[in-house]
């Protein structure tokens, strides 16, 4: 049974007091899916969170009390906080895209500076066996590997040792 909440527009919001749940219909063209995920994630510790489909292009977010019943004030608080977090996540997503280079650069400097270079023990644990890159020009090959004498067909290192002896 859906009802409405005082002071909350019922165009987007419906309430099921028996379940201790509020639902919020969100337009994906206004709040991208990443913003929906970001905002609903912040409620996982307080509510049961369900995402569903409404009309095309709409996501229905339902926040349900872990222990019903809950007072209307709390339900209003959830809706208000969800709406604010959706806006913050949506806008933040755009800002981060525009400022990504700066944020990445500072983050790398901060973490790199705090970590410092690896110790000899850490280098010892590092797996160097995996080829890090393709080498079509043979730049990483030693001179001997690249230009050394090729073995004659059928001849082995042991045979050549015996001949020389």
């Amino acid at each position: 049974m859906t009802e409405s909440l005082d002071a909350i527009p019922d165009t987007f919001v419906s309430v099921d007091r028996a379940e201790g749940a509020v639902s919020f219909v969100v337009d994906e063209s206004v709040y991208p899916l990443d913003a929906i995920y970001g905002a609903t994630f912040t409620f996982l510790d307080r509510c049961f969170v369900f995402l569903g489909r409404g009309e095309p292009g709409q996501v229905v977010i339902t926040l349900s009390a872990k222990k019903p019943p809950v007072e209307d004030d709390e339900l209003r608080g959830w809706i208000g906080e969800l709406a604010n977090e959706l806006l913050a996540c949506a806008w933040r997503g755009r800002i981060l895209e525009q400022n990504r280079a700066t944020i990445e650069a500072v983050t790398m400097q901060a973490i790199g500076g705090a970590m410092g270079p690896p110790s000899l023990d850490e280098l010892e644990d590092f797996d160097f066996s995996e080829e890090p890159f393709d080498d079509p020009l043979g730049i990483a090959m030693s001179w001997e590997e690249k230009y050394g004498k090729k073995e004659k067909k059928g001849e082995s290192a042991d045979d050549s040792g015996e001949e020389n002896a």
């Binding site: 995920y37 609903t40 994630f41 996982l44 049961f48 969170v49 369900f50 995402l51 349900s64 872990k66």
Partner: peptide
């Protein structure tokens, strides 16, 4: 109710982390 809710939260959390 509780089992459904916790399962849904877990599925959502894993979906977000996977993404």
């Amino acid at each position: 109710r509780r089992l459904a809710g916790e399962l849904a939260n877990y599925a959502l959390g894993l979906t977000i982390r996977g993404r």
